[in-house]
Amino acid sequence: MEIEGEKMFEVDLGNLMAYDSHYTIPSQQSREELVKECLQKGTELVQAIADSLFTLPSTEDVDGPLVKLPPPTTKLPREKHMPRPRPPTKWEEFAKKKGIIKRKKDKVVFDEQSETWKRRHGYDHANDEEAIPIIEAKPTDDPDEDPFAKRRQDKKGRVDKQEKNRLQNLKNAAKFGDLPSHVQLAATSLPITGTQAVQKKVTKDELGNVAGIASTATASGGKFDKKLPGEKPPKHKGKFRKFPPVAPPAANGKVTGPSEREQTEKILNKILSKNNHDILNVNKAVTVHNVKKEKNRRSDKSKSSATDKKLKPQKKPFKKGGSAKKGNPKAQ
């Protein structure tokens, strides 16, 4: 920053800015006075900028004198990050290692077929494989193979390979955060601060499961549906509860699982065993007990103030008993 004469203004000519760091506006005055004071001081500062601006060497132009401004001295933050150097592609790396130098190729090449000069690439280009009408057969050729189809196939393979390489190189560039400006990531171009990370891609298995569930939406539960190639049967059939047979195992010895009797016995043994305190969560039991007690106390209280309740309309006249007592003994 420059310092202007005795008045000590800081002038940043690049931004056409001047700053007076010594003057303070006297307080306690009317609005008009204040504005007048500010404008007067502002005029001084603007004059200081003009003093250094109009004395710069200028070139005459049609519209007026042009002046070359010095770069701004006040540092302001950038809008975007600095452009990052592009990482080399796989070919560029290889070429560097091998010392291959890129040479310019002519745009036009001699075409053997028509004996004329044609462009190297694009429409009607020279030495086009696909434009050859006759391929001479060799004794080593496979008679079953169509040589034209093979050429087409080969070319397609090369084009596909190049596309694959291109995408791989772009992926690599994206990792470094330097895609060319006209290419963007398809999913999201920018993760925003407040949001979660980019949604995870649905895996093949998950997709299969969802498809399985969706297929059961028909009347037959998907039993008679046509299966797509590669489609898996639904993973979970939808049976959650098990009802073990009440009767003892059949004579043929076909046992599907433990009978009900066995199951209940198992549970009973656990409870009645010596170290049953392992199973019982004492803390939880105490809390449950306390809660129950509290509930009872409250219900007693409300009963005592029943006279007040009569005045109010009853909301649920046929309310069922407490939900705490619910349970299904058979399920276990």
Binding site: I25, L34, D61, L66, V67
Partner: peptide, 21 residues
């Protein structure tokens, strides 16, 4: 805009900011 060349005929306005307190 940050410019390198400025036309002196186009200079026509100013912003004045004053710290009151």
């Amino acid at each position: 805009e940050v410019v390198e060349n400025l036309n002196l005929a186009g200079v026509d306005h100013a912003y004045v900011c004053t710290a009151l307190s």
